[in-house]
Every structure is written in C-alpha cells, then in structure tokens.
Computed example of a mutant assay.
Amino acid sequence: MKKIIITIDGWSSCGKSTLARGLAKELQYVYIDSGAMYRAITLFFLRHHIDWSDTHAVESHLADVSLEFHQNAHSEKSEMYLNGENVEYVIRDMVVAEKVSEVAALGPVRTFAVAQQRKMGTRKGIVMDGRDIGTTVFPSAELKIFMTADNAVRVERRFKELYAKNPNISIEEVKANLEMRDYIDSHREISPLRQAEDAVLLDNSYMTMEEQLVWAMKLVHERL
C-alpha cells in the first residue's frame, strides 16, 4: 500500500501531538514528535550548564547528543530517549518549556535536528508534528496540516496539562509562557513558524479529538 508523509505544524497547545498520534495509530504509521527532540536537547544543555549563546559550545556539545524514539509496550506511545535515558516526562517540565524556544531557534540545533528528522522519513509512512515540518523538513510532504486555536482555549488546555503535574502553577504563568513561545517561534531567523502555502488549515478551538481525527482521515484518503 502506498505510504505518505504527513506533517502537522502549528502553535503551542493546539493538540498537534494528539492528532498526530491518532493518525499514526489509525494508519499504522510511525509518529515522530519533533518538539520532543528540541526539548531533549534543551534538557541536555540545562543539565550540562551549556551557554547556548556560545555557538562553538553548542556545536561541540551536540556531538554528545543521541536522540531516539522507543515504543512503550504498555501505553503504545512513542517516548523520547536522550543518550539512552527515557526523558519523556522530564522534558515536559516547565523549566524546559521556558527555554525550549530559545534553544530551538539556534542554527546549529536546527541543522542537527532537521538532519535526523529527514533521515527518519526516508521510508515515508510517518506523521511528524512541529513548527517547520511542512515548510523546512518535508516541503514535499503529500499532506500538510496547520493547526491553530483560540488563544484562551490554548491557555486553558496547557494549564490543565501542567496543573496535573504541578498544582502550584498559575494560569498567568502558562499564558505568559505561551505568548513568549509564540513570539520566538514566529520571529526566529531560521525556519520561523508559518503556514505552508499548500497546508490545510485546521482551527480546532471547539472540536473534539474524534472530530479532528475524522476530518484529518478524510484528507489522508484523498491523498492516498
């Protein structure tokens, strides 16, 4: 059966990974969370006290970073491994979230990550979400989706997600973090967040996960 590459880009907390996982499961494709890769690199830099304003330091330490995705047999979800360690839950921490957009904007980091992402897609049959997947990583992808949602809805979604892990977090902190990430993601010099010309826009502010999956599967069948 023909296999394609599906890219899902968009703003933070739009449910990109949820839709991507759903599509991958439905199609029996490989799901790749590009954001987890940048979060893992950020975690590595934080742990090793690397000054990412120093280009030489960034380039030299990237050689010590090994990123892999492994399937969790119990949850059936793909999880991020950094140098052999499962960091799937650590990288979702607010400390990493506050710095990941800065690290992801660095030229050497993007070159490093994009090269790995392209290698993962050589056999097609993948669903990858992120900020520049349809514009930079796979500009020839057969299906590109760009996701957005009302800002208040996004803040509420993100707050619920983080509150479950940290009851001390405030909705104001979450809102400020999202606004900062939006600005950095859309204004960075290299591969800024933008909708590809041939991407299909999905505003899921008031859609259920099931409705989004049905909508996306219709597009997949059209491409296949």
Rank of each mutant, 00 (worst) to 15 (best):
H187I: 07
I190E: 08
Q71Y: 13
K77E: 14
V127I: 08
V137N: 00
L62W: 03
D51G: 09
K77A: 10
A104Y: 03
L202Y: 00
F138G: 15
V87D: 04
D182G: 06
D54C: 03
E98C: 06
A57H: 08
V90T: 12
S170P: 06
E98G: 15
A216H: 05
V103H: 12
Q212E: 12
R181S: 07
R47Y: 04
V153H: 06
S17I: 09
M37K: 07
Q212T: 10
E211I: 12
S186W: 01
K218D: 09
K99L: 09
Y163R: 12
E222C: 11
L46I: 14
H221W: 07
H61Q: 15
S12G: 07
H187M: 10
F69V: 06
G10R: 00
F159C: 02
M1I: 07
G134S: 07
S170E: 08
I133L: 13
Y163M: 01
D132F: 04
K218T: 14
K165N: 15
G35A: 01
H221G: 10
T7Y: 00
T42L: 05
M207H: 12
S12L: 02
M80H: 02
V65E: 03
N151A: 15
D132I: 08
V30Y: 08
E102D: 11
C14N: 15
V65F: 04
K2D: 10
S101F: 01
A104G: 12
G10P: 11
E179Y: 02
E222I: 09
K25H: 12
F112G: 10
N86F: 05
L219R: 13
F45D: 05
P108W: 08
P167I: 01
T148M: 11
E161R: 00
G15I: 00
I169S: 02
P108T: 14
L201F: 10
P192Q: 00
K119N: 09
L27M: 14
R92C: 05
A115T: 11
D185Q: 07
Y183E: 10
I91H: 09
E88N: 14
A196Y: 01
A164L: 02
R118L: 07
V65D: 03
M1N: 10
R123H: 13
I190Q: 08
D54S: 04
M217L: 15
E211W: 01
A149I: 02
E88L: 01
I126S: 01
K2M: 08
V90H: 07
V114L: 04
K77T: 09
L201M: 13
S170H: 06
E98V: 09
T111L: 05
P139R: 03
F138R: 08
N83E: 06
N177S: 09
L62I: 06
I184G: 00
V174H: 02
G15A: 14
V95R: 15
E156F: 00
I50H: 05
Y206L: 06
A36R: 04
V137P: 02
I41D: 07
L62S: 03
A176F: 08
A73C: 06
R188G: 09
M209L: 14
F44N: 03
